[in-house]
Amino acid sequence: MTRTLLQRSSVLLAAASALALAGCSSAGSTAEAGGTASSSTSTVEIEDNHGTHSVEVPPASVVATDNRTFETLADWGVELAAAPRALMPDTIPYADDESIVDLGTHREPDLEAVVAADPDVIVNGQRFAQYREDLAGLVPEAALVELDPRENEPLDAELKRQTTVLGEIFGKTAEAEELNAELDAAIQRVLDGYRPGDTVMAVTVSGGEIGYIAPEKGRTLGPLFELFGFEPALEVEGASDDHQGDDISVEAIAESDPDWILVMDRDAAIAADEPEYTPAQEVVENAEALRNVTAVQEGHVVYMPKDTYTNEGIQTYTEFFDTLADAMGEQD
């Protein structure tokens, strides 16, 4: 009997040990899985134009609609599920990426495609800002982030704010800091090169016509007057912030005789393939009324990057400021 009891005890002990080991193994696997999950995802609190949002990082599915952000996201290797590829210049690699669902343009957007993308975060803004409420209703679980430059805020600070927040969302804080530093350096170069008292004119060229951009108006060249302390060559009462500039005569521009003319070629970004497209440089150089203007005579006409109208991110401004600083540094 003693032998039988000992045998039973041994069997029970072995079984208990096996269960214990299985339990430890299962618990260990669960702990490891939980640890992996917790280490691979987390939540960050970010501040955008509409308040504070909790964003799960890294986001598994991303939709982006703000043209100002495309170059940054592409440079950082962020994969997009959907975006308005029709609004992207060909300088952005996303434009030809067929794996990204094309949301179309802001005039006739395919917002239902955003639902199918099931995004964790939507980087919305600029031309798609008008659809904020629609997107919030369609995908209420997604973090809807908007970082458009705000009115009455310095342009450089707003560009850096956008880059900083995107860096927090996509784990690219060091890269964001580098972009911000490059912008600061380019701005300082312009400040160092600009001679106080030199007058500046900003224009946009569209449809072969030169439009006047008022100081501190609009979203591209207007804000540079305040940023750099440029002295306007011409100020027009009741000027607008129209994206094609205000319709004033070339003769009026010539009469103001600016020392510098800054130009945005609107059509270069959206109509360069059309037969009737004329580059801004040709329009300005062939304008008879501008022939004797100081800026033209001295080669002080500086053009923004060709894709500016559909690519107004921090890199675009940094590039333009460096170009402008180069030109100003060549003065006697």
Rank of each mutant, 00 (worst) to 15 (best):
V296I: 13
A202H: 10
P140W: 11
D242S: 13
A74P: 02
C24D: 03
P119A: 09
D307P: 01
D247F: 05
Y277N: 06
A185N: 08
A31R: 15
R150Q: 15
D246W: 08
A289F: 06
I210N: 09
R132V: 01
Q162P: 06
A117P: 13
S39Y: 03
A157E: 15
A268G: 02
V200F: 03
R3D: 14
G23F: 00
D198I: 03
D257V: 04
T72Q: 13
E235N: 01
A64K: 08
T323H: 06
I213C: 08
T72P: 13
G229L: 07
Y277P: 03
A280E: 11
V203Y: 03
N286R: 13
S10P: 02
A202K: 06
D110M: 12
E298N: 15
V78M: 04
L144Q: 12
E255T: 10
L290N: 12
I46P: 12
L179V: 00
E237K: 05
R219E: 10
H243E: 10
D120G: 09
K160M: 11
T173E: 15
E153T: 03
R8L: 15
L227S: 07
A143M: 05
G197E: 07
V11S: 11
A15S: 06
G245W: 09
A64N: 13
L73S: 02
T72D: 09
K306C: 00
D96I: 00
